[in-house]
């Protein structure tokens, strides 16, 4: 089971209170995780990446195992600790704004 931590506003939108737990088939990649999120929580489509281009929204970053993976290929395999559920995959919003 993959664990994903999303920003508070997206938890509200998805009606969840804690981290997401998702079944993701191997190979576990950023793209596969986002596909699983959007399948399970359709209201989050377009809020993390663009509907059409699939580009990450610019004020969001992806982290795993204390590494910023935002600029990595979305099809690159993620660390084993993410695939096993030992560590969560983080989707983090920029700390900015008024």
């Amino acid at each position: 089971m993959i664990r994903v931590i999303i920003p508070a506003h997206l938890r509200t939108l998805a009606h969840v209170e804690d981290e997401l737990e998702l079944d993701v088939q191997a190979p576990v990649t950023t793209c596969a995780i986002l596909d699983a999120i959007e399948e399970r929580y359709p209201m989050l489509r377009g809020t993390i990446r663009d509907h059409v281009t699939k580009q990450r929204r610019p004020f969001l970053r992806f982290f795993a195992c204390e590494e910023d993976l935002s600029l990595d290929s979305p099809d690159a395999p993620l660390p084993d600790a993410i695939a096993s559920g030992k560590e969560p995959f983080f989707i983090i919003g920029a700390i900015a704004g008024g």
Binding site: E39, R40, P42, M43, R45, H51
Partner: peptide, 21 residues
Amino acid sequence: ETPGGGVSMSPDGMPSGESNK
């Protein structure tokens, strides 16, 4: 509600989730 964007419990009949598209 987000129209058509409810939590999907099953792969079948999944809401479109395109109300913001």
